[in-house]
Amino acid sequence: MSRALDRVGTWVGWAFFADLASALGLTFGYMFSRSVTMQYPDKEKWLPYARYRGHHFLKRDAEGEIKCVACELCARICPCDCIEVVPYEDEKGNRRPAKFEIDTARCLFCGLCEDACPADAIALGQQYEFSSFSSRDLVIGRDDLLLKPGKAASGGGVVAARLDTQKTVLVEANEPRGYNWWRNIRRR
């Protein structure tokens, strides 16, 4: 009986456009919700999480020496064969990379090199803006890798940013942590 009544109620609702009205109410609610757009690159920028896998970087130890021992394990494990390591022996008799090149055009940012590294020398950092007009520029050498930014300390926020197009296109953000982007997501 109650099911029949429910059905009658549904039909009455349809006759007075209850379904359309609820749809209109939903869109109206969304109209006054926060928008999830990030105004990248000239106003806002996303700071990645600490575990984000961005551009690789090479680490130095406490003495400022490069940590890498040129064991070539990263080059072996790399599924796209984009790391090239040539070792040499430095004045202290340590094995170090003479050449350490990563072709980021071929890299798939799986992070296996980071896992395989026995010396904790290579990791995937927070930089994600390194597009280029030439795939040649995407082959990054040892010295450039040492200068790349490391893992994000705090992340998952949106910070105010500025677009600098004077020399090269550069998105600059100075704040360490911004507002949590997820607060914009409307949940019901």
Partner: peptide, 10 residues
Amino acid sequence: KIAGHMQQRM
């Protein structure tokens, strides 16, 4: 603008 805000855009 209305289209944007209804779709959570700007």
